[in-house]
């Protein structure tokens, strides 16, 4: 392979758009949760487990976490692209980040649904 600068991967728009949408989802979730915490007369174990007993809250939290993981993937990938120059090493870093994030998804499902 010749050592030449190559660009033109023909992707980027979707990630840019996803980064914005996931940011909005995270903002709504964080504000809703903060609002809920503020209106609790007393915050104890029962209130907290009560909140996460409903499937709606579990799903909303899962949506938040999926947004966080996808958002994190784009951000971390951009950092790796800037700082890891050998292409092989960069691919390895990308694969490791993706695998870690997929593991987090599985872990999040286990926590939220008490599996």
């Amino acid at each position: 392979m010749v050592n030449r600068v190559v660009t033109g991967a023909h992707y980027g728009l979707r990630d840019w758009l996803v980064q914005r949408v996931t940011a909005a989802v995270m903002a709504v979730y964080v504000l809703s949760l903060a609002g809920w915490l503020l209106v609790q007369p007393q915050l104890d174990y029962d209130a907290w487990t009560g909140l996460f007993a409903s499937n709606i809250m579990r799903s909303f939290t899962m949506l938040f976490l999926l947004s966080l993981f996808y958002h994190a993937w784009i951000g971390v990938r951009d950092i790796v692209m800037d700082y890891v120059h050998p292409a092989g090493l960069r691919l390895l870093a990308h694969v490791l980040v993706i695998l870690a994030l997929v593991m987090y998804v599985i872990w999040a499902v286990q926590i939220l649904w008490g599996l």
């Binding site: 660009t7 033109g8 991967a9 023909h10 992707y11 980027g12 728009l13 840019w16 692209m81």
Partner: peptide, 11 residues
Amino acid sequence: LDNLEDPYRLF
């Protein structure tokens, strides 16, 4: 637009 649809060139 195709020419700029790239994680480096535009994004």
